[in-house]
């Protein structure tokens, strides 16, 4: 138990430090971008948070496969916890994407491929979470969620291709392409991505611990009821 707590503390500390370092690099290390100006700095955390948003769903997919293969509750907890954390990140990606689009493209929303696929991803997460809240038996809930997580995940690459091609066949004027990245920008981006991944891992770990605690509580309640009746 003591070692577990140590790992927890270390993770929280490391992700906090990494986050602050990344934040510092975004504002003081990365250079000002020529065409877009200061607002381009949204880019670093925006990309990092989109990465976590998509990666979280991959973990949900892996958790789903693990659950169906082994029938172990810990895989299901992993899948569910990752979906909850991932949903928060993809929501953040969408909102900050819109905040970036407004000054650069003059509109909060445009059906640009990356925004569109993020929206689809967001809808997949929401559907997954809604499904989890709507199944009666806990065992079936886990299995349904696993199947849905897998089926949804395999369509994501196809969605990505379809949305890309859809836009390149009829090209749009506005696009984020053509932004020249200097080495300092790349460093900042990489540190941001690493920091966000670390924060994601910390949150995921805490969320998993919460679910385990809930299981313990449910087992205790059942014991209590059995003793009382």
């Amino acid at each position: 138990m003591g070692q577990k707590r140590l790992v927890d503390r270390a993770l929280v500390g490391a992700s906090g430090v990494a986050f602050l370092v990344a934040l510092g690099m975004v504002f003081f290390y990365a250079p000002r971008e020529a065409t877009m100006g200061e607002v381009q700095r949204i880019f670093y955390f925006h990309v990092a948070s989109a990465w976590v948003g998509f990666f979280g769903f991959f973990v949900t997919f892996v958790g789903g496969i693990g659950y169906l293969a082994t029938n172990h509750r810990r895989w299901d907890i992993l899948a569910f916890s990752s979906a909850e954390v991932g949903l928060v990140y993809i929501s953040m990606t969408l909102v900050t994407g819109m905040l970036w689009a407004k000054p650069v493209w003059g509109t909060y929303w445009t059906w640009e491929p990356r925004l569109t696929i993020s929206a689809v991803q967001w809808l997949l997460y929401v559907a997954y979470v809604m499904l989890r809240g709507s199944v009666l038996s806990p065992e079936r809930e886990a299995r349904f969620a696993a199947v849905y997580g897998i089926a949804a995940f395999v369509t994501v690459p196809l969605s990505w291709f379809a949305i890309r091609w859809w836009r390149t066949i009829h090209p749009v004027i506005v696009s984020g392409e053509g932004m020249a990245l200097t080495p300092k920008m790349i460093h900042t981006l990489l540190v941001s991505v690493a920091a966000f991944t670390l924060v994601y891992a910390t949150l995921l770990r805490q969320r998993i611990a919460l679910e385990h605690a809930r299981d313990r509580l449910a087992a205790l309640r059942l014991q209590d009821e059995a003793a009382a009746s």
Partner: peptide, 9 residues
Amino acid sequence: YLLVAYIIF
């Protein structure tokens, strides 16, 4: 916009 975005982050 930058400020609001990073507050959200």
